[in-house]
Design a protein around this nucleic acid. Sequence first.
DNA 1: CCTACCGATCGGTAGG
DNA 2: CCTACCGATCGGTAGG
Lengths: 212, 212
Amino acid sequence: MHLPNGADKRERILAVAEELFFQYSFLGTTLEMICAALRTTKPFVYYYFKNKQEIFETITWRGSVAVMTAMKFPADDMRPAHVKLAEGLHRFMAACVANFRSGALAYRDTASLRPQFQAKLRRLARYFYADLCTIMEQGRADGKLSFEDTMLTARAMVSVGAFMYAWYAPAGRVPPDEIVRALTSILFKMVGLRAKPMRVSDRLRVHTSKTR
Amino acid sequence: MHLPNGADKRERILAVAEELFFQYSFLGTTLEMICAALRTTKPFVYYYFKNKQEIFETITWRGSVAVMTAMKFPADDMRPAHVKLAEGLHRFMAACVANFRSGALAYRDTASLRPQFQAKLRRLARYFYADLCTIMEQGRADGKLSFEDTMLTARAMVSVGAFMYAWYAPAGRVPPDEIVRALTSILFKMVGLRAKPMRVSDRLRVHTSKTR
DNA sequence: CCTACCGATCGGTAGG
DNA sequence: CCTACCGATCGGTAGG
């Protein structure tokens, strides 16, 4: 045990609030509930955050960024589009599973976000979809993929990851890695990609460069 | 113009409330907002409904039933499983598009539903998934379908319809019928079904029996 | 069908 | 003088 510093305490607030916001929504979660779960008081929370809104948007932003950066590749990555898409979809699905709570807040509780924050999220999503659609169409032009409307197919694939909040339970029947592999394999079928999704260990062995 | 009877007035309340609940969530919608949109007062609304909860659950139940009954077939329907699945998936997707607002309330605002109502919804969903998975596995046994984990594939297909609330706009780029056709076609790929989804007019010509 | 009003509970902040 | 908190209570607003 060690005395936690400020950053640790802030993280603890965020962790507890994420759980409560996911379960009860923004308006359904009171500061009293957050404080009770933290076994602390409101002024303690208000020392680290200006208000409830700031806590909520911090969590929401993290989750959204984690999911929406999966299609980013270095400019010098010259692999074929369908290979990048396979890796990107796998990263996307892994991020959806790892962040299924915070990732859901953006679209499930949109009304509780300030308009300017919503605009920031829409920008993030627009870039994600632009990257995704570009890679998809390159892969199709290369004859490696097969699908009809690009944007609708992209929306459908994102739905599979995004809607996970409604049914996924971390301690469920299938282990997380296996869920990621199986769902990624379903996304592959949706774009007519033949390859099987790599296992996490394979991906780490083949692709060692850090993208962040 | 005619003087609306009690049922009409009730429906008007439900229509206005559905729009507001979808946009602002249950807790974010006040009775004052509903009354203002209706240009009436709270006691008028409380003449037709016991409380805010009853309005919300009435709307939610309708949407959920509309979507979750798509996989029901008459006991004497002897068509092959993959044919029934094709029709069921098409009906499911059409119901998701037609009820994207009320259908979303069940999973987006779950916390605002009473536990016993949540249990009723879970029962409805369990029957839907049971029917869906049964037909899927029959079709696979017949050699007409191809997929891995049945339940995960079912979840993924439902996600495509369910998550539509996050992006679908009735007055958007693609007309509703075309959205339904394109998304159903994507569901077909997810289960390895070769057939193309029928157009609405075709389906009505071929299959005239009422399922309700 | 409306005006007026209640018990309670909310997010946020005061003094110490 | 600062920080990190507590007990108490503020102004406003919710459902009914």
